[in-house]
Amino acid sequence: MKFFLHPQAQEELEQTVLFYKKQQAGLEKRFIEAAEDAINRACRNPLLYRKIDDDVRKCRLLHFPYAIIFRPRSAQVEIIAIMHLRKQPNYWQSRK
């Protein structure tokens, strides 16, 4: 299944990559790999992940305090947010 990245989710991804790049050499690459893995898992089996709102689900990244917030659609997975798990948990709801 294909995916669509909401423009604000794309921005969150880019900002997080820059943050990890400043923290430690190579850490941004590990974050990108973890994000790609979570997106792939959500695309392979979107209904496996816990509902957090009407039709919105959450897939956690491995080894990082982030989750992919997404909505399964018939032809694709719509990624609404790349959310830090310890900050403003419902900020993404205006994107629905």
Results as ranks from 00 to 15, higher is better:
residue 90 N to F: 06
residue 19 F to P: 01
residue 71 R to E: 15
residue 86 R to Q: 09
residue 8 Q to P: 00
residue 29 K to N: 12
residue 92 W to V: 00
residue 78 E to I: 00
residue 20 Y to E: 08
residue 27 L to W: 02
residue 86 R to P: 00
residue 50 R to N: 06
residue 18 L to E: 12
residue 83 M to P: 00
residue 25 A to S: 06
residue 88 Q to T: 08
residue 33 E to N: 10
residue 28 E to S: 13
residue 66 Y to L: 05
residue 86 R to D: 12
residue 79 I to S: 00
residue 82 I to T: 07
residue 72 P to V: 09
residue 41 R to P: 01
residue 78 E to T: 05
residue 50 R to E: 10
residue 76 Q to M: 13
residue 70 F to M: 04
residue 88 Q to C: 03
residue 93 Q to K: 14
residue 64 F to R: 12
residue 32 I to M: 13
residue 23 Q to P: 02
residue 39 I to M: 11
residue 50 R to G: 00
residue 72 P to W: 03
residue 87 K to N: 09
residue 15 Q to S: 12
residue 38 A to G: 06
residue 51 K to C: 02
residue 90 N to G: 12
residue 87 K to H: 13
residue 65 P to Y: 07
residue 58 K to C: 09
residue 74 S to P: 04
residue 53 D to P: 02
residue 15 Q to N: 14
residue 36 E to K: 10
residue 38 A to C: 08
residue 63 H to A: 02
residue 16 T to S: 14
residue 7 P to Q: 11
residue 11 E to A: 11
residue 22 K to D: 15
residue 32 I to L: 15
residue 6 H to T: 11
residue 13 L to N: 13
residue 36 E to N: 14
residue 84 H to A: 13
residue 14 E to S: 00
residue 53 D to N: 08
residue 18 L to Y: 03
residue 49 Y to F: 15
residue 13 L to D: 01
residue 72 P to M: 07
residue 18 L to K: 15
residue 14 E to G: 02
residue 19 F to V: 03
residue 52 I to R: 00
residue 30 R to L: 15
residue 95 R to P: 01
residue 2 K to Y: 11
residue 36 E to V: 01
residue 89 P to F: 06
residue 43 C to N: 10
residue 20 Y to C: 10
residue 13 L to F: 14
residue 75 A to M: 07
residue 46 P to A: 10
residue 40 N to Q: 11
residue 33 E to Q: 14
residue 25 A to K: 08
residue 29 K to L: 15
residue 81 A to H: 07
residue 21 K to E: 14
residue 43 C to L: 01
residue 32 I to F: 06
residue 46 P to G: 07
residue 65 P to R: 10
residue 74 S to V: 14
residue 33 E to H: 11
residue 84 H to N: 11
residue 43 C to T: 07
residue 6 H to G: 03
residue 96 K to M: 11
residue 64 F to D: 05
residue 29 K to P: 02
residue 78 E to C: 04
residue 80 I to K: 00
residue 62 L to G: 07
residue 63 H to M: 06
residue 74 S to T: 12
residue 10 Q to R: 12
residue 26 G to T: 10
residue 52 I to S: 04
residue 10 Q to P: 00
residue 82 I to P: 03
residue 79 I to A: 03
residue 14 E to F: 00
residue 41 R to C: 14
residue 65 P to C: 14
residue 62 L to A: 08
residue 78 E to F: 04
residue 20 Y to M: 05
residue 16 T to M: 06
residue 26 G to I: 07
residue 35 A to N: 03
residue 7 P to K: 04
residue 63 H to S: 10
residue 90 N to H: 14
residue 14 E to Y: 02
residue 63 H to T: 14
residue 40 N to M: 12
residue 44 R to K: 07
residue 88 Q to E: 14
residue 69 I to E: 05
residue 14 E to H: 01
residue 53 D to E: 13
residue 81 A to L: 02
residue 83 M to L: 08
residue 89 P to L: 08
residue 43 C to R: 00
residue 52 I to F: 02
residue 57 R to P: 05
residue 73 R to Q: 15
residue 86 R to S: 12
residue 60 R to K: 10
residue 22 K to F: 08
residue 79 I to K: 02
residue 46 P to L: 03
residue 11 E to G: 09
residue 95 R to Y: 03
residue 29 K to W: 02
